[in-house]
Simulated assay, not measured.
Amino acid sequence: MSNSRDERLALAALLEETGPEAATLCTGWLTGDLAAHLVLRERRPDAAAGVMGGPIAPYTARVQRHYLRKYTFDELVALFRNGPPRLSPFALPGADEQANTVEYFVHHEDVRRAQPDWQPRAIIDGLSDALWRRVKGAKFFLRKSPVGVELARDDGDNRTGPYRVTVKNATPTVTVIGTPAELTMWAMGRTSAAHVRFDGTGEAVAALKAWRS
C-alpha cells in the first residue's frame, strides 16, 4: 500500500472518530469543513484551484459549502476514503502518491494535533523518506521569507545522502532542524504545532519566526 493510501485511510478513520465538529489546525475549519475540502479537491478540479487563495477563492468556498449541504459528514468521509472518481486527475497512475502524500499527512496531523491530548506518533521510514523527498516544495511557501532558509533533516539515525535543503537562498540564513515530518508541518505553516529548532543569528531567527507566526 502507498504512503498516500495509508494516510488517506488513517485520516478517514480519525475523522470518523472525532466527528464533524472537532477542531483542526486549519484556521476557521472544523473537521466537517476539512472533510468537504478533501472531497472537493478530488472531485471538483474547477474549484480546487482556489484552495490557495486568489480570484477564484470565493467560488471554491461556495462549492465547499455546497458539499456540506449536499452530503452528511459520514457520506463525505466515505467519499474521501473511497478515493478519487475515475475521471479525476488524481486517478491517473501515480498521481495519488505524488500529489497527496504530503496533503494527507499534513491534514491527518491537522486533526491529531488540534486535539488537547494529542501525542506524537511513530512515522515509518518510508513515509519519512517520502516527506523528505518532497520538502523542496517548501520553496513556494517560503519564497517571501525575510531571511534565507535551509531545512536540515535530523531523525536520529545515520542515513546517507543529502540531509540539508536550501529553500530560500539569501543572507543571513537560518537552518530549521527536525525530522521530515516536523519540517513538513513547519514549512506548511503549522509552526506552533511543529517540533523544530533553529540555528542562526538571534536577529535572523527572530525575523523568521515573526514572519512565519
Results as ranks from 00 to 15, higher is better:
E17K: 15
V205S: 13
A99S: 13
R112L: 14
K168T: 10
D199R: 04
A210S: 11
S88K: 15
V135F: 08
W132F: 15
D129S: 06
D117S: 15
R197I: 08
L92F: 15
K136P: 10
R153E: 13
R190C: 15
G19R: 13
D199I: 04
S4V: 02
Y71K: 15
N100D: 11
K168G: 02
H108T: 14
R121D: 07
R5I: 09
I177Y: 00
R197V: 13
R134P: 03
E97S: 01
R134G: 09
L68P: 00
D154H: 03
G54C: 06
K209T: 04
V165C: 09
A122D: 12
F90I: 07
L9Y: 01
A193N: 09
Y59T: 09
Y163H: 12
M1W: 08
N158W: 01
F198C: 03
L131F: 13
V147Y: 08
H37V: 08
V106K: 05
K136N: 10
S128D: 11
A206C: 09
A99D: 12
P93M: 02
A49R: 10
L92M: 10
S4F: 04
F105P: 02
L183W: 05
G202M: 07
D199N: 10
G126M: 05
Q119P: 08
L38A: 14
T31C: 14
G202T: 08
A206I: 08
V165D: 08
T171S: 05
G94M: 11
P93D: 08
G19M: 03
S88H: 09
V147C: 01
S213Y: 01
P20K: 04
W132I: 02
M1Q: 10
P45G: 03
V51T: 15
Y104E: 10
N158L: 08
G94S: 12
M188T: 14
A99C: 06
P20I: 12
L142N: 02
L208R: 06
S128R: 04
T175G: 13
A48Y: 01
E103R: 00
V39H: 01
P89Y: 09
E109G: 07
A13Y: 10
W132E: 01
I124L: 03
R5H: 07
T184W: 09
E21N: 09
R5F: 03
N100K: 06
R212L: 02
A10G: 14
T72S: 13
L142K: 02
R65A: 14
H107D: 00
V39A: 08
A10E: 04
R121I: 09
L30F: 15
D199W: 07
S88V: 05
S213C: 07
A47K: 05
R43A: 14
T179V: 03
E150M: 13
A210T: 01
R143I: 03
R41C: 10
N82V: 03
T101G: 05
Y163R: 13
G156W: 04
V102W: 08
T175Q: 02
E109P: 02
L40H: 06
D117V: 03
A194S: 07
G28S: 12
R164F: 03
